[in-house]
Computed example of a mutant assay.
Amino acid sequence: MPPIVAVIAPGMMGSAVAKRLSTAGLEIRTLLAGRSAESRERAAAAGMRDVAPGQVADADFILSIVPPGQALGLAERLAPALRAASRKPIYVDCNAVSPETVLRVAHVVRETGAGFVDGGIIGPPPEPDSSRTRIYLSGPDAGKVALLERYGLSMPIQPGPVGAASAMKMSYAGITKGFTALGATMMLAAMRAGTADALVAEMSVSQPQLLKWLTTQMPRMHGKAYRWVAEMQEIAAFVGADRPGAGLYEAAANLYEVIAADVAGPREETKLLDAFCDKARTA
């Protein structure tokens, strides 16, 4: 019998994952209480059905796909329903959190009697014709969750205990999103100093691939910056507070916080970043 899957919540990533599974014929449940009209529209388009927490707990698998700062809170919110469920699901935390945070989430879930698997998503929201999105899994029950590969997801198992998949995610995001923060910092500095044209000209000759990568990623970052603040803080924790590199990610968190506020307000920083990218495209 096909498994029932709960996906929380219907953000861009969650709804795309849900759509892959619903298109393959699975019943997808979610929670829409307090969600915006836009979220409800995404959920409907993805084939997600709004249910009560008890019906979420009655699913075979629960995929938690929320901003990193909400990962622990979601587990705590669902704990009473999980505790009351007669047939326990496997709860998969797919969020960009440190191994330490995922162990705290696992403790909350396991106390209810439910199973727990650590997950880490790498890649964009999955599309029907794309295999670029992988949900790494770790922990003793990872193989049970990998059953969902039959329904359109790519779910490689990361060897190791709960925390191994999150460590993989932190390592990868620390490079890609950390590098995006570094690029944004220098783009903004060059625009303010009046050296952007010279920088673009030099990079077009000496670092063309790097320039293309940065200017492709930068516009995509603007709308995600608010979610990346907590993610950078989680990466800093993963690096270790006593390690000098942790400060890089605390600074990146501060940058993304500024960008997020700018997106919601004057859009001064984002206009400068867009202007730099425009220079690169026309160089």
Rank of each mutant, 00 (worst) to 15 (best):
I4A: 10
V5Y: 03
V5M: 08
V7P: 00
S15H: 07
K19S: 14
G25Y: 07
R35V: 02
A37H: 09
A37V: 13
E41Y: 02
A44Q: 12
A45L: 14
A45E: 14
P53V: 03
G54H: 14
A57S: 08
D58C: 04
A59P: 09
D60C: 01
F61E: 09
I62R: 06
V66M: 02
P67R: 03
G73E: 15
D93E: 13
V97E: 08
V97Y: 04
T101P: 04
V105Q: 03
V109R: 12
T112F: 06
T112W: 02
A114M: 02
F116D: 04
D118Q: 10
D118K: 10
P124Y: 07
P125S: 08
E127P: 01
S130V: 03
S131Y: 12
Y136N: 00
L137N: 01
G139P: 09
P140M: 06
K144F: 00
A146I: 02
L148R: 10
P161T: 12
A164N: 07
S166Q: 03
S166L: 10
A167K: 01
A167H: 00
M168A: 12
G178D: 10
F179D: 07
T180L: 15
T180C: 13
A181I: 04
L182I: 14
G183Y: 12
M186D: 01
M187C: 11
L188S: 06
L188G: 03
L188V: 10
L188R: 05
M191C: 07
D197C: 02
P208Y: 02
Q209F: 08
L211K: 01
K212M: 12
L214R: 02
T216H: 13
M218C: 06
R220A: 10
A225H: 01
A225Y: 08
Y226F: 13
V229K: 06
Q233R: 15
A236D: 02
V239K: 04
V239H: 06
R243A: 13
R243P: 00
R243S: 00
A253P: 09
Y256H: 11
E257K: 14
A264W: 04
G265E: 11
E268A: 14
E268G: 09
E269C: 08
E269A: 14
K271N: 14
L273N: 03
D274C: 01
F276V: 08
A283C: 15
